[in-house]
Design a binder for these strands. Structure first.
Lengths: 248, 248
DNA sequence: CAGCAGGCTGAACACGTGTTTAATCTGGTG
DNA sequence: CACCAGATTAAACACGTGTTCAGCCTGCTG
């Protein structure tokens, strides 16, 4: 749940054309890029250059002229979306640290295009997906540390692994739910996410609040089985899942 | 975790050519279908008919001759995989009810192709994905009911929503993890899943065993917020006996 | 044996794709 | 004005795709 809070705050930015990014060349280039982001989010990365060009009211050749290739356009969109995420993170720093998830979600409509694009990336895999997930893990690490320190969250045997799992779980669940039940109106990602939460928020928070099993036995059995909690050395099997995270 | 057990048992079948399905026409048709399943699992549903034909040692025209179109071939693969899942479910009924997840996973290699195909379907969305998830939810419902009755799992405010969430969460996490970190050898799905579990089993079971939050407050707040829990049980205050886990 | 249905194929077709090319238009500068 | 760099485009190119077509081969039946 902290992960969804995190995600919400991480995306609270609109995609209005601002002279922030590097190029700042012409307005047409930005218009094409914005159309591409929107179209990619709505119809996936298989969308043809011709369709994007039509959306932007421009010839296909101009798209290539400005970006060099479709892959380069895709990369430019990735960069733009990622930059928007980072920017919005700065703006919404600390807003959602508490846990008033619903209030944050009420404003979800503002950043719908970015969210749609990210979900599409999560389904397709690739650099945005990885970078986005790493960003969220990094943030969740901070939130979780604070929550543990404040006595809100329980400590974990392996804090790092837990943060990674919780983040992956939240995003994966959302992504799968959207894949299985695609919204009739891909424009309104806000409504979609709200629908998702309406169905899954209760079981999610229940699991987080009280767990699922009645005893710690399975956990302790597993801890005994691996016999080397991450605080110590390692031994036989368990192919050493090291948690490498850098890249802020 | 019960979901992963469920999934494991649900897939313990190989894709050997059996005269089970309707047609039972020629062996070549089945060979093409099997090659398609394998190739779709390995490289996604965008794979060209020519590639599949080459895999099966056959001309592209023959593929169309036998299945009519690529979409029809896709549908045939879906049906075949789904049938294999149902069949294997019958065979492995009750084997994994206990929870010896690791033993089941040791045999994961047998049903690797089916698993790969299902994961690809989960990423792409579509009928197999939906049907597969619904199957797994149905099974998980049974497992969970037994677990609750046996005192292994805690009861839920909304059993149905919990089963749906837990299943979606398990599958979504696996799917996302595989998307973000695609295996270098797509053949060996078994190794991939084992790697996934090596990294995420501990935090998953820890979450299931002890939860994440220290108090029920957020849950109770939410229950108060919606003010109509589906079971019609506790409504206003008096938030059920606290369920802090103690060692048995 | 003749004949024929069906598995099977190489070559082609129609089409959509990303990209290139040559040309036009436009706006600013000497 | 002449000129030029850049934005912009229509048309074409090269290619990969799913699919079709006409014919070959094979094995079975009369």
């Amino acid at each position: 749940m902290f992960n969804l809070v995190n995600m919400s705050s991480a995306l609270a930015a609109d995609a209005d054309p601002g002279p922030s990014s590097a190029g700042a060349s012409g307005s047409t280039r930005d218009r094409i890029r914005d159309a591409a982001v929107l179209r990619f989010a709505r119809s996936g990365f298989g969308t043809s250059v011709r369709t994007i060009a039509a959306d932007a009211g421009v010839s296909p050749a101009l798209v290539i002229h400005h970006f060099g290739s479709k892959d380069a356009l895709h990369a430019a969109c990735d960069e733009h979306v990622l930059a928007g995420i980072v920017e919005s993170k700065r703006q919404n720093m600390g807003r959602a640290t508490g846990g008033q998830l619903l209030q944050v979600l009420a404003e979800v409509d503002e950043y719908a295009p970015l969210l749609g694009y990210v979900v599409r990336s999560l389904q397709a895999g690739g650099d945005v997906a990885r970078a986005f997930v790493e960003h969220m893990i990094e943030d969740a690490r901070g939130y979780t540390r604070e929550a543990v320190a404040a006595g809100i969250a329980k400590p974990s045997v392996d804090e790092d692994a837990r943060v990674r799992y919780l983040t992956l779980s939240s995003l994966g669940t959302l992504s799968l739910a959207l894949t299985l039940n695609p919204p009739e109106d891909p424009e309104d990602v806000g409504a979609t996410v709200r629908t998702f939460l309406a169905e899954h928020y209760l079981p999610m928070i229940e699991l987080y609040a009280q767990g699922f099993l009645t005893s710690r036995r399975m956990l302790d059995d597993y801890l005994l089985y691996v016999s080397d909690p991450p605080t110590g050395g390692e031994s036989d099997d368990a192919p050493a899942p090291e948690t490498t995270n850098e890249e802020p």
